[in-house]
């Protein structure tokens, strides 16, 4: 008996909480803090001599270069052609890519015919084809549009047909059971159902488009972010090089922001 009394605790003990965690939570400020911390660290390092000026330019100097670029109006002279190349090329590549991806998703003949072709084209570094594009489309804007369009096309196709394949078959069955026409099923069930996959594919395609934009402008362009970076690089002008890189990063943030905005607008129905 005394044994049991010893084991019985005199005070009730609260059960230790062991759930929680493993759930991503929104901490928007953290990204900003990390970014500011890195910039401040480099600034401190370059100023104190810990990092030699040849390794990294001072963030403050990059900022000054950037402001000069802005004030001399050269920023827009470089940005405008770059943006128009990006928009035209990516728009063309992505829309053809989505169209082809949907066709692959819907028709077995198109799938069997084009999937191996897309798989063969995908791993080709599109930059390697730039000389070919110059011959086909001329040294002007045409070859640049073509390079960016071609580069965005393949990842968009792959993402789109994957997204169409993943549309819930039971919803399509439902559409058929209510006698919806083939076209209605595609427009009202398949397309909205594939939208999440298409948009996440576009995230990747647009980043690739920016990479190819720079590649295209390194060859035969007077103005453009790529031309600016190439010129700075050949002169080992690290401040200007980094100013160009910062512009590219901002461009990446901008496109990702646009996709994020579209997702919030179009995909609010997701659980």
């Amino acid at each position: 008996m005394s044994d049991t009394t010893l084991r019985t605790p005199t005070q009730p003990i609260e059960i230790r909480f062991r759930g929680g965690g493993f759930v991503p939570q929104s901490r928007r400020w953290v990204g900003m803090v990390v970014f500011i911390f890195i910039v401040l660290f480099i600034q401190w390092g370059t100023q104190s001599g810990l990092i030699s000026p040849l390794t990294l330019p001072q963030p403050a100097d990059i900022m000054t270069t950037f402001v000069e670029l802005w004030q001399s109006n050269l920023l827009f002279a470089h940005l405008a052609p770059s943006l128009s190349r990006l928009v035209v090329g990516a728009l063309f590549g992505a829309s053809v890519g989505i169209a082809v991806g949907i066709m692959i998703g819907l028709f077995s003949y198109v799938r069997e015919g084009l999937v191996p072709l897309v798989a063969a084209i995908f791993p080709i570094p599109k930059i390697a084809l730039l000389p070919l594009f110059v011959i086909w489309f001329g040294i002007g804007e045409g070859s640049k549009y073509a390079l960016i369009a071609f580069g965005t096309f393949t990842p968009t196709v792959v993402a789109t047909y994957g997204a169409v394949d993943n549309v819930d078959r039971s919803l399509i069955r439902m559409g058929q059971s209510f006698g919806l026409s083939w076209f209605s099923i595609v427009r009202k069930i398949v397309l909205p159902g594939a939208m999440p996959g298409i948009l996440s594919g576009l995230r990747i395609s647009l980043a690739i488009a920016i990479i190819l934009l720079v590649a295209a402008e390194m060859l035969g362009a007077e103005y453009g972010i790529g031309a600016y970076i190439l010129e700075a690089g050949s002169l080992y002008d690290l401040e200007r090089l980094f100013a160009g890189v910062v512009i590219l990063s901002l461009l990446g943030l901008l496109t990702s922001g646009i996709i994020g905005f579209t997702e919030r607008r179009l995909l609010g129905w997701r659980v």
Partner: peptide, 12 residues
Amino acid sequence: TFVFQDFSLLPW
């Protein structure tokens, strides 16, 4: 006309 076990509603 069917009524399905998994409801089959369009979530959007």
